[in-house]
């Protein structure tokens, strides 16, 4: 019994992976059994086996769409994160700028993407739908990076600031050797959120904007919905979920690798 509670208190990595996978398989089995025994129409709820068939038959198209969605999500993530950090630095340098601009930034966050998408389409998307999608996804993604990085930049201890002042550090030295490293745990936490939101943004934007030259998963889903191809919808949804998990996992790994040496959140402690 104590072995079990110790295992649960500090679950090893294999267990953290194995448990959710096992649970997912159980859900799939239950789903399959229910659909078969209750004889539910595949238009309403296709059995997992039907979804798997569709995945296999259209692997090429779906893989390409997954790749396109991943690409645009990554671009939006990088764009949003870089813009978010630069904006946070600008705000931390100028209180005036922060007071004037940051309330307007909140406006971009409380307005649903779906609502501003048509406008962005008119501005940049007429000839180039892909850049409209990219821009929309980046608009959603930058905000957590900005707000977290700002919090991090502000939370640097006064003693450390004093140290840099007494040593006559230049403001660039202060930024790169003190403030940005101190804000890194915050920035990374923001980036994790931004990763998920970039994906949401890419999907929502593609729904609204339609597809550009390269169709993504959102396009596959709406296309399948128009044709009442429910198994295809599930297949695309499954890939979308997989993409989300992969992005979130990669960013968690990045966070761990950056912080494991020194930050409390990543350092494991012997008990």
């Amino acid at each position: 019994m104590t072995d079990w509670s110790a295992l649960m208190a500090r679950p090893p990595l294999w267990l953290r992976v194995a448990l959710p996978c096992l649970f997912f398989v159980l859900v799939l089995v239950a789903w399959q059994v229910i659909v078969r025994t209750a004889d539910i129409s595949p238009l309403i709820l296709p059995a997992p086996s039907a979804v798997l068939d569709d995945l296999r038959q259209h692997a090429g198209t779906l893989a390409l769409s997954t790749w396109n969605t991943l690409l645009i999500t990554l671009k939006a993530f990088v764009l949003g994160t870089v813009a978010g950090i630069l904006l946070a630095i600008a705000f931390s340098r100028s209180r005036l700028l922060e007071l004037a601009v940051s309330p307007l930034l909140v406006l971009t966050q409380v307005t649903p993407t779906v609502a501003i998408a048509p406008l962005v389409l008119v501005w940049v998307g007429i000839d180039n739908v892909d850049s409209a999608i990219l821009l929309l996804a980046a608009i959603i993604a930058f905000f957590p990076v900005t707000s977290n990085t700002m919090l991090g930049l502000r939370s640097v201890s006064h003693d450390l600031h004093d140290l840099f002042t007494v040593r006559r550090a230049t403001s660039l030295q202060r930024l790169f050797l003190l403030e940005l490293p101190a804000a890194l745990p915050y920035t990374l936490a923001g980036a994790r959120m931004a990763g998920g939101m970039a994906l949401v943004g890419a999907v929502v934007a593609e729904f609204v904007a339609g597809s550009g030259t390269d169709a993504g998963l959102a396009w596959r889903i709406s296309e399948a919905a128009n044709r009442l191809n429910t198994p295809r919808m599930f297949a695309a949804l499954f890939l979308l979920g997989l993409l989300g998990v992969a992005i979130s996992g990669a960013l968690s790994l990045l966070q761990y690798l950056c912080l494991r040496r020194w930050h409390e959140s990543a350092v494991s402690r012997d008990r």
């Binding site: 201890s157 003693d159 004093d162 140290l163 840099f164 007494v166 040593r167 020194w262």
Partner: peptide, 27 residues
Amino acid sequence: DIALVPQEPTLLPWKTVFDNVSLPLRL
């Protein structure tokens, strides 16, 4: 050249002992 030793050691947690000590020279 003035150096300050505050009440708390206030080391940069993301730098090793070597990099903390060499910081004023690096600046």
